[in-house]
């Protein structure tokens, strides 16, 4: 079984973001970067599928400038066999442009399964996999929380309101991965050593037309300070009055 996982390099989220002077992007000064969370689950799930099958290999693909090689190498050190960088100066916001480049790379790769995280944790559009599925004419199961492949067929579980649904599909196919499927492994020191000897291919990204761009970004307005009006039952009449007259929610 041959699996491709499309991964994205994103900033770590536990910081206070600032907007760059252009007003159209996040200020990248001092940010730390890593593989997007859902993509990490997808890489882990892919590795587990091939380990369970005892055969096959996992490739990873990332689109962007040379810094994405760091993210690709992390996947290699987790146990992925080969990495491909689709090189471009900046990652466009338009998933159609990205999906076109990915589809061109994936089309003749002979992959049984193509995996994505269900969305990147920075852009959070969750659209790229749909574009690729459409361009390649493949079935797509979005946001899988469980995944099994057997006898050339796949089955996946999706979490839906109040329950789950099981979807079966023929291969080749595309799946996007939700949380809960597998916790990504830490790259072992042996994995880090081995990654140096694994192939990392670089090709120009054949981006599609960019039809969406970010015009402006703005931070949410600062929240006004709260007000303490009293304690216990004594404060209730005033609270109710304020909710009725000032907040107008009652």
């Amino acid at each position: 079984m041959k699996i491709a996982v499309c991964i994205k390099r994103v900033p770590e989220m536990d910081v206070t973001f600032k907007i760059a002077p252009t007003g159209k992007a996040v200020d990248e000064t001092g940010l730390k970067w890593d593989m997007s969370d859902f993509d990490g689950y997808a890489v882990e799930a892919a590795l587990q599928l091939t380990e369970k099958a005892g055969t096959g290999e996992v490739h990873v693909i990332s689109l962007g400038p040379d810094v994405v090689q760091e993210t690709l190498r992390k996947a290699l050190s987790m146990g992925v066999a080969k990495a491909v960088q689709l090189k471009c100066d900046t990652v466009p916001f338009d998933a159609y442009a990205i999906g076109t480049a990915l589809a061109a790379e994936l089309k003749d790769g002979g992959y049984d399964l193509i995996m994505f995280g269900k969305m990147s944790i920075d852009g959070a559009n969750g659209v790229t996999q749909f574009v690729v599925a459409e361009l390649l004419g493949l079935p797509l199961v979005h946001a899988c929380s469980k995944l099994e492949i057997a006898d050339g067929k796949g089955s996946a579980r999706r979490e839906i309101e109040g329950g789950g649904e099981l979807v079966s599909f023929a291969l080749p196919a595309i799946v996007s991965i939700d949380e809960g499927i597998a916790r990504p492994r830490y790259p072992s020191l042996k994995g880090i050593m081995a990654a140096k000897r694994k192939p990392l291919e670089v090709r120009p990204a054949q981006l599609g037309e960019v039809r969406l761009t970010i015009e402006t970004m703005e931070l949410p307005p600062p929240r006004a300070a709260g007000r303490i009006i009293g304690e216990g039952a004594a404060a209730v009449p005033e609270l109710v009055a304020l909710l009725q007259n000032e907040a107008k929610v009652l």
Binding site: R73, K74, Y186, I192, M193, A195, K196
Partner: peptide, 15 residues
């Protein structure tokens, strides 16, 4: 070097 930084990232995450 880059490998040292990979080791550091992994151990940081583990810690």
């Amino acid at each position: 070097n880059e490998q040292h930084l990979q080791v550091r990232d992994m151990v940081r995450a583990f810690a």
